[in-house]
């Protein structure tokens, strides 16, 4: 899941409704200004029905857990399904970049993924979403009219299109349906 401006509230709403029986891993990339995502994790954990943790370098991706990309690093998944970090240049003016995450998760899971692009004020994630769709993944985009910042989901729709474009309050339901 990728988001930026307005992402905290959006993530809280979605994670509050995601089914607690979910066995798939959830990986979140949310641009925050801060140098530490521990507060973000804490704020999400208050609402989420799944445990929320910062993604740890080299640690395995675990099902039923929400992993949050650390601040200042790109988050990638190795073919061994473990997390990797990089401090390579920003992509789409962002690090962590949603594009990087979407592409890497698509490779690691051979396209068997659902990518969700939500509220945000820039275009990060749109290229990644196109990659997801080109490799057999499923793209869910938040209906821009329901987004606190419409630019990100709108760029997603313009560049990649979507398999489902739904309002914020229907994203969790869509995920539950796809994953359970």
């Amino acid at each position: 899941m990728g988001c930026s401006a307005g992402g905290l509230t959006a993530l809280q709403e979605v994670l509050a409704q995601v089914d607690a029986r979910l066995t798939q891993p959830v990986i979140v990339c949310c641009h925050t200004g801060s140098s530490d995502v521990s507060l973000l994790c804490e704020l999400l954990a208050r609402h989420s029905r799944l445990p929320v943790e910062e993604a740890s370098e080299r640690a395995p991706v675990r099902g039923g857990v929400v992993h949050v990309a650390p601040s200042g690093y790109h988050l990638l998944i190795e073919p061994t399904l473990r997390f990797a970090l990089s401090v390579d240049a920003k992509v789409a003016y962002s690090r962590p970049s949603i594009d990087v995450l979407f592409e890497s998760v698509t490779d690691a899971y051979r396209g068997r993924i659902v990518a969700v692009l939500m509220t945000g004020a820039n275009a990060d994630g749109a290229e990644g979403l196109a990659y997801v769709r080109a490799h057999g993944g499923y793209a869910v985009v938040q209906d821009p009219t329901t987004a606190e910042a419409a630019a990100m989901p709108q760029a997603g729709l313009d560049i990649a299109g979507a398999d489902a474009c739904v309002p914020l309050n229907a994203i969790a339901g869509t995920l539950n349906q796809l994953c359970l």
Partner: peptide, 9 residues
Amino acid sequence: YAPASLKRR
């Protein structure tokens, strides 16, 4: 080298 970031580079 770790494959995911090597591929990007």
